[in-house]
Amino acid sequence: MTYGSETWSLTVGLIRRLRVTQRAMERAMLGVSLRDRIRNVEIRRRTKVTDIAQRVAKLKWQWARHIVRRKDGRWGPKVLEWQPRTGKRSVGRPPTRWTDDIKRVAGSRWIQAAQNRGTWNSYGVPSSTFQKTYVQQWTSIG
């Protein structure tokens, strides 16, 4: 279910849809129906499956570190620094970009931080408050 999730722009709606799907899969694994009225917490306790929001956020955090460090001329790092042409913008709120939630946690200079292994490791170590904050922002939704 998380195949390719590193490249998704995480939004509240997407996380909600993933969680609904995960709960349906867990109910199917246990052979439990919605009519049985078993709480999600109890189903999660029985299946011992990691929350999909945590998994997707952690994968994206690791992918961001990996993609920025590439030096082989691929398009990944170039796309991160690309600026669109100036001109008329469409009406309404701009769509969520892939980097928006990373910037919210690691700051606007996250690309430079990822270039330096020591700096990014202080962000990305599982015990790091930056990665915990990043993952937590998606865990608290829903």
Rank of each mutant, 00 (worst) to 15 (best):
Ser108Thr: 12
Trp63Ser: 03
Thr96Met: 09
Lys78Ile: 09
Arg70Tyr: 01
Gln62Phe: 01
Lys88Leu: 09
Trp63Glu: 01
Ile102Lys: 02
Pro94Gln: 10
Thr96Asn: 01
Arg93Lys: 14
Arg74Trp: 01
Lys71Leu: 07
Ala113Cys: 12
Pro94Val: 02
Val91His: 07
Thr86Cys: 03
Thr99Gly: 06
Val68Pro: 12
Val105Pro: 00
Thr86Trp: 06
Ile102Met: 08
Asp72Glu: 15
Ile67Met: 14
Trp75Ala: 15
Arg97Pro: 02
Ile52Trp: 04
Arg65Met: 14
Thr96Ala: 10
Val79Thr: 12
Trp61Arg: 01
Val91Phe: 11
Gln112Tyr: 09
Ser90Ile: 00
Gly73Gln: 07
Gly107Met: 11
Gly107Trp: 08
Thr86Met: 06
Leu80Lys: 05
Ala106Leu: 15
Lys60His: 05
Trp110Pro: 13
Lys78Glu: 13
Arg69Tyr: 00
Ile111Met: 14
Arg89Trp: 06
Lys88Tyr: 10
Ala53Arg: 14
Val79Arg: 12
Trp110Gly: 04
Lys78His: 03
Pro77Thr: 11
Gly76His: 02
Thr96Arg: 08
Leu80Gly: 03
Gly87Met: 05
Arg104Tyr: 00
Trp61Ser: 01
Pro77Asn: 13
Arg89Leu: 14
Ala53Cys: 13
Lys88Pro: 10
Arg74Gln: 09
Ile52Val: 15
Lys78Ala: 13
Arg97Phe: 07
Arg97Ala: 14
Gln112Glu: 15
Gly92Leu: 09
Arg97Ile: 08
Trp98Cys: 08
Arg104Asp: 05
Ile102Ala: 04
Lys78Met: 08
Thr86Glu: 14
